[in-house]
Design a binder for these strands. Structure first.
Length: 374
RNA sequence: GGGUCAAUGGCAGAGUGGUCAAAUGCAUCUGGCUGUAAACCAGACGACUUCGGUCUACGGCGGUUCGAAUCCGUCUUGGCCCA
């Protein structure tokens, strides 16, 4: 199967389509995070109406609840959550970082894999590269990610180097398990999922290049940018993103994991990345931040094209206009800023729900604009 | 009419001689959130300020004291009990 069909080549970027077994994805695209097999607060219909097609689920969260065996038994996570679009499963690699590195009490990393203490009930779990792949096959997702070893950005170069080496070793083990699962399940080039590796290396360009090179040798369907991609001031490490994109095979999809703000996404696109996922639209929506198009902005590549408002701010108390006049989403078509502020203040779930919906519409529209760009 | 208890910042409610511009919770205001331990977290919340302080505040008034939200007297208001 030809995974990536090249359509446009401009500068050093290539844009095209990714062929998954559940359908074709035109790049660039954004996937909302349905970490626990649900985009928080939104129904299947709402997501479809916004124009969502691919989404991201999480291996770590789903192996804890409801469990990989159960999910495999019911025919996979697609069936369980009733979603027919392509699903990408994150490996749990990020949880290695966000749980263990941020709080050593929650687990331990060894060469064999990562021990986790469940944040749900304290029980112990062990995730190996092989197991991460096995679970993702049990989930039945269409794009899988290798177990990787991200590190906090400020650790020593030495530690980043160690993380790169481990990430490469684990990636090789994942690939091996992936091939074995495909064989066992009699999957063809047309029916098998895609496997993505993750480039680590922190803020060191040479480590990123080295990591990309080693992963390329093993060979994957796509490559991700892992670890933190913004510096201490919250600015995108653009040079690193560019360098890393250049170090990845030109005909492979490039997945900027966990990115990002609308501005970050545009910059990453411009740096050569074409797949994105992030909690920002939904989490910040739940917390009251709304993305608004700047009416006079026409070139998303060259100017500030959006603003954010905090809908809970007092200044919206009597504002009967929609969140965004130019938006076609259900929230903007039906409710006012004052009403949504009211919903947030009294704790009605409809508030966070509508805010998430609107923000996802914003992200979807942003991706449409990027797809038309050139 | 007699007795008794109470009155604290937007609300609830601690504090009962100095460490009190006053705990805590709620409410309010403002931030933050980047492969979701996140419907979460943080800061502010009497006024003024040259940011060192200054002033006004724990029902009213008066007192005791170096010093009072805290002790005493009295008034006002409210709860409960007895006539």
């Amino acid at each position: 199967m030809k995974i990536f069909s090249k359509e446009i080549t401009a500068k050093n970027l290539r844009r095209g389509k990714i062929h998954t077994r559940k359908g074709v994805l035109k790049t660039p695209f954004f996937m909302p995070d349905a970490t626990r097999a649900s985009v928080r607060g939104l129904t299947r219909n709402e997501l479809e109406n916004v124009g969502i097609y691919p989404m991201v689920v999480n291996t770590y969260h789903l192996m804890l609840q409801p469990g990989a065996l159960f999910l495999e038994g019911v025919g996979g996570v697609h069936t369980f959550m009733n979603w027919s679009g392509p699903l990408l499963s994150d490996s749990g690699g990020y949880q290695v970082y966000s749980l263990i590195h941020k709080n050593p009490k929650l687990g331990k990393i060894t060469e064999k894999g990562a021990y986790f203490r469940s944040v749900i009930d304290g029980s112990k779990h062990f995730l190996t590269p092989q197991k991460a792949i096995q679970i993702q096959f049990a989930l039945g997702t269409d794009m899988m990610v290798v177990l990787d070893d991200p590190r906090p950005p400020l650790v020593s170069r030495n530690e980043h180097q160690g993380a790169v080496e481990r990430t490469v070793r684990w990636a090789a083990q994942c690939k091996e398990e992936f091939l074995s699962q495909c064989k066992k399940r009699q999957l063809t080039e047309q029916t098998r999922p895609l496997l993505f590796a993750v480039v680590q290396g922190g803020p060191h360009e040479d480590l990123r290049r080295e990591c990309a090179k080693e992963l390329t040798k093993i060979g994957f369907d796509g490559y991700g940018f892992g670890g933190r991609h913004i510096d201490e001031e919250g600015k995108l490490m653009r040079k690193i993103m560019e360098e890393t994109a250049q170090a990845i095979p030109e005909d492979a999809p490039r997945f900027a994991l966990g990115i990002g703000t609308p501005k970050d996404i545009v910059e990453c696109y411009d740096s050569g990345w074409d797949m994105f996922d992030c909690v920002i639209p939904t989490r910040e929506g739940r917390h009251g931040r709304i993305f608004i198009w700047e009416p006079d902005a026409h070139d998303i590549m060259r100017q500030d094209f959006y603003n954010t408002i905090n809908i809970t701010n007092k200044k919206f108390e009597t504002d009967l206009t929609p969140l965004d006049r130019s938006c076609e989403c259900y929230a903007c078509k039906n409710y006012s800023r004052a009403y949504l502020r009211h919903l947030f203040r009294v704790g009605e779930p409809l508030g966070p729900q509508m805010a998430s919906l609107h923000n996802l519409q914003f992200y979807t529209n942003l991706m449409h604009k990027l797809q038309k760009y050139e």
